[in-house]
Design a protein around this nucleic acid. Structure first.
Lengths: 333, 333
DNA sequence: TTGTAAGCGTTATCAG
DNA sequence: CTGATAACGCTTACAA
């Protein structure tokens, strides 16, 4: 009878009347196996339903065929798309994904890194929490290669991200070209790198245009909305809003609707990251979209290149451009 | 000097001048360790920076402290929220999440299950692909406990899901109560269980009301939109649309806009799952929302209960209710 | 209370 | 070409 426990190489070896190492060699496509023996082994494998045990493999070999992904959170159009694409690419490469979130908290991030170290992840893709202690983080990585996504780490760490500054500058300039002068920028938690850079890009564009910048920030959805509404009702209200994330986009749209229910197009608008119904609000929303899939895929590929080759190649810092999808909220017709 | 390789129990044992098993016992909070020895061990652990190796632990102990999550896809408001909540709860329970997608393809699903088996996942949370061969799936699980999410498996498998039928029936009835008679239901791929059930719920409500049902289905975003537009332009167009998913929601809204750009509120509308800008389209969108976080959390808890206790307790089939968020698109004022 | 030794399932090494 | 054997790092009997 078939033993109730999972069959091991030894069971296969016994059934095929060969040694364990021959089974191993055969299974991993190694040479030095006579066709005849190979046949016997394969038969045994199938009849026993043998499958190699990844855990034992990892212990023996060092490689765990899994990569860690640590993101701030997942329920957000940008990160969820990244996760999807990473999963697809990792599966293609025969690795699995251990998914962890740090919720923008460096301490939680440390814990999650420890999880990956202890489970011997082959590498890490990380969108780091703000105020991370980089020296510490570097140590916490141990020997795991890392690729930063969306937010860079230190100088000689691979990173794949948007050219946040440039993207924000372009969006702002677009608004300027529509002849608008009072342009405010609205953002969630500005201690986050990507938002910081976008703020800089916005400010730079405003300065170039000789305009005064105005940043509206708040860390949660609701208070951001209130802040924006206040600004809109103030003495000198902004005539255009540039939202730096999908969360800020929703807050801003909400605020506009509350303050200006009858004529929302009075206030020009550009959002960041495409949201579900962007085409269906009135006026249809102009947005900066990131090449999310590309970024995610590249980060995985880069990571696997690091994992694969022990001799290091030059650091890669990939900064991709965003695309402005012009609909009508910006003032375009 | 500290060895360059990661320290092991043996290094700690040596440094603390005790046996390896004492270190192990001490670290896992076992009894039978004198305070004095414990101190020496702890010191050694800290000075060496020792961390137990999960891989070795799994190999020895059977438990891998990781659970597998197989979803159709992730870039979707419903599943991404589920993933987020599952990650949070799993982390709380000291396990990590291996995230996999099957893209509604049973073959890919089989492969992903194999991944989990081979990496000895402690359990699986699965939203199964349509047309899965349940007998096969059951075998493919091996000894891993499973909890079905969103879509059930076989009779004696735990499941946490929406009462899809009831939810759809309620939404439909709500439309009926507004005095509308021509109500069409629009859905993506109707071979998916949850959509099937929602269709049944819709049909049941229509029948109860003595009305004729009409289901508009297509498997991709674009063709669904075309189908809907055609229906809307037909001889006897529906006067209300009930979309069964967020994807269908977007298609439907798009179609309404294309056909009826000036007066979108001519066509009543209820969507499924809250989308980003649901409050901001005109008229604000009425939607059925699922208790996503609760469902995700419960599925993890249930799974861990199964993993923890070897003696089986009764099968749990948890069906939660959805909530109708009444805004204005349904006809409410 | 503590230490020794035997695995867990694989694979690399190195003799046959 | 093939097969013992020794790790990989940990835990769990079983002895001491």
């Amino acid at each position: 009878m078939v033993p109730s426990r999972r069959p091991t190489v030894l069971d296969v070896a016994k059934a095929a009347r060969v040694g364990a190492s021959t089974v191993s060699r055969c299974l991993r496509g190694g040479p030095y196996v006579s066709p005849e023996v190979r046949q016997r082994i394969m038969d045994a494998v199938h009849s026993l339903g043998y499958e190699p045990d990844e855990v034992a493999r990892s212990l023996r070999g060092g490689r765990s065929r899994s990569i860690g992904v640590i993101f701030p959170q997942i329920a957000n159009p940008y990160f969820s798309r990244c996760v999807q694409e990473i999963e697809l690419e990792a599966t293609r490469q025969g690795s699995s994904v251990i998914l962890l979130t740090h919720q923008e908290d460096p301490d939680r991030q440390s814990k999650q890194l420890a999880v990956l170290r202890r489970s011997r992840a082959d590498g890490v893709i990380l969108a780091a929490a703000p105020n991370s202690d980089m020296e510490k983080l570097r140590r916490e990585l141990g020997t795991m290669p890392i690729v930063a996504l969306d937010r860079p780490l230190w100088d000689d760490a691979d990173v794949v991200m948007l050219d946040h500054r440039h993207a924000a500058r372009q969006a702002t300039l677009h608004l300027v070209q529509h002849g608008i002068q009072q342009i405010a920028c609205v953002t969630a938690n500005p201690s986050i790198y990507s938002f910081q850079q976008r703020i800089h890009g916005y400010q730079q564009a405003m300065q170039e245009a000789g305009l005064k910048s105005r940043v509206i920030a708040a860390s949660d959805y609701i208070s951001l909305q209130t802040e924006i509404a206040n600004a809109l009702r103030s003495k000198h209200p902004p005539r255009a809003l540039f939202a730096l994330s999908s969360m800020a986009t929703v807050s801003a749209m909400q605020a506009i609707r509350n303050v200006q229910p009858d004529n929302p197009s009075e206030i020009a608008f550009i959002g960041f990251d495409d949201v579900d119904l962007a085409t269906l609000v009135q006026p249809p929303m102009t947005v900066m979209v990131q090449p999310t899939d590309l970024m995610a895929r590249e980060s995985v590929r880069l990571l696997f290149k690091r994992v694969g080759s022990s001799d290091p190649f030059p650091v890669q810092r990939i900064e991709l451009g965003a695309m402005l999808i012009r609909r009508n909220s910006c003032g375009c017709v």
